[in-house]
Amino acid sequence: MNTPAVAFVGALVLVGIGLVGTLTCRNLIKVAVALQIMMKGVLIALVAAGAAQGQINLGQSLAAIVLGVDTIGAVILLALSVQVRRRFGTLDVSALSQLRR
């Protein structure tokens, strides 16, 4: 196995850990942390895919844009959690379940 392949597998593991985090964490901010971990995995995966094709700079530029998008997502999610804390008094996602059925 060459290095990009190793990196890609590692990236998938990171995405998997992120998924585990979104499923096991109850705190909204921790869910945001888990999403960040997923995105780290995605960045590595994109760059590794570019590297495998000898197009490392293509992979880099895609990853740079994804990094921007993902940062905006994180900011929005954090702003939302600030608001959630204000309205619901807690960050526990189980409190956010009034829209049910």
């Binding site: 999403l35 995605v42 996602v93």
Partner: peptide
Amino acid sequence: AALEATVKYVTQSMVGSA
């Protein structure tokens, strides 16, 4: 309720993006 809906929309969307 709107806040809750947005939180779900954003989080699930981001998982989808990833």
